[in-house]
Structures are given as C-alpha cells and as structure tokens.
C-alpha cells in the first residue's frame, strides 16, 4: 500500500511539474507558432499538439531545466510539419488570409509583399527567419532548436532575408 501511495504521489508531482513548465512556456510558444504559421487557429492547434507530444514524452526528459529548449524543439518541428503539409495540399491559401491585421507600422502594400515573399519561402527558411528576427535567437540556439549545423542556419537566414528584401525592391535606388 505504501508503495502505491508513493507511486501516486510521484505521479502527482510529475503532473504538477509538467503543468508548471508548460504554463511558463505557453504564451511564447503560441505567439511563435502564430508568427511562423500566420494563422491563429493553426497556432492554437500546433501549440496544443506540442503540449500533448511533450506530455507523452515527458518521462524521457532527464534534465527538467532544459524543458524550454526541448518544448521549443517539439513546437518548431510541429510548425514545420504543418507548413510542409500545407504545401502538399492541392489548394494553396495565402497566408495573409487569416493574419492579424493590427500591423500599423508598415504600409499595407509592403505587408502584402512581405506576406507573399514569406509564403514563397520553404518551411525551413521561414522557421529560420522567424527564430532569428522575431524570437531574436542567436544562430547557435537556432541550430540546436532545429537540429542542423550553425552554417546551415546562417545560409537559410541569408537566403530568406535576401528574398524578403527582393520582395520590397530594396535594392532599387537605395544604399545597403
């Protein structure tokens, strides 16, 4: 009986630890998914899926203080899979269709150009761009998060930025 009580207590402690760790990461995860996917419904789905996957694998996480990076990796993988899945669908939908509309800092035309350029990037390039310029992560952290060498991340960021810049015609009549 004592052993059963100890097991139950250990399970409760694990559940509570998981809930606390997820609660701390949830807001940032949802926002990051929203920026990557450009759709708040999909962001909700992806974040929820990440929580479920994290819960199912929580027992394999040895260092709880690495939860944030571990959870982030799960989330980014899910977002990337969703982008790939979307690319395979017979019908492509503009990412701007459900994007937030409160962006008052850039002209509407520029926003649409950037939306289109972003939608034309591969899932890997989109993820790299968002992690660098939205999440402000250093290249090494991005490399760890997406599981590729730092050189690959640098290349992806460079290509993505150039394509976004081209979309705005940034090279025309301006210095760099």
């Amino acid at each position: 009986m004592t052993e059963q009580i100890e097991r139950a207590a250990a399970a409760d402690a694990r559940d509570a630890a998981f809930d606390g760790l997820v609660a701390a990461e949830l807001d940032g995860a949802y926002r990051l998914a929203g920026v990557i996917l450009g759709d708040r419904w999909q962001a909700e789905d992806a974040t929820h899926d990440a929580v479920v996957q994290a819960w199912l694998r929580f027992g394999s996480l040895r260092e709880r203080d690495r939860f944030a990076a571990w959870f982030g990796r799960i989330l980014v993988n899910i977002c990337r899979d969703r982008l790939r899945e979307k690319a395979r669908r017979p019908i492509a939908v503009r990412a701007v269709a459900d994007a937030p509309t409160d962006d008052r800092t850039t002209a509407v035309e520029d926003r649409l150009l950037l939306d289109d350029a972003f939608a034309a990037l591969s899932p890997d390039h989109r993820v790299a761009l968002v992690l660098r310029y939205y999440a402000d992560l250093p290249v090494e952290a991005i490399a760890e998060l997406v599981g590729v060498p730092a050189g690959t991340v640098k290349s992806r960021i460079h290509v993505a930025v150039e394509r976004m810049r081209d979309a705005l015609g940034a090279d025309e009549g301006g210095s760099r």
Partner: peptide, 20 residues
C-alpha cells in the same frame, strides 16, 4: 526594422484562454 515590425505584426497576441 521593417522586417521585425512585419514579423511583430504576425504575432497573434496573448495565448487565448481556451488554449490555456
């Protein structure tokens, strides 16, 4: 700056209560 502003504009805001 413009790229960061545009990315910030895609931020859906705080996590909805339903998701929490």
């Amino acid at each position: 700056r413009r790229l960061r502003d545009w990315l910030d504009g895609r931020d859906p805001g705080p996590v909805p209560a339903t998701l929490r």
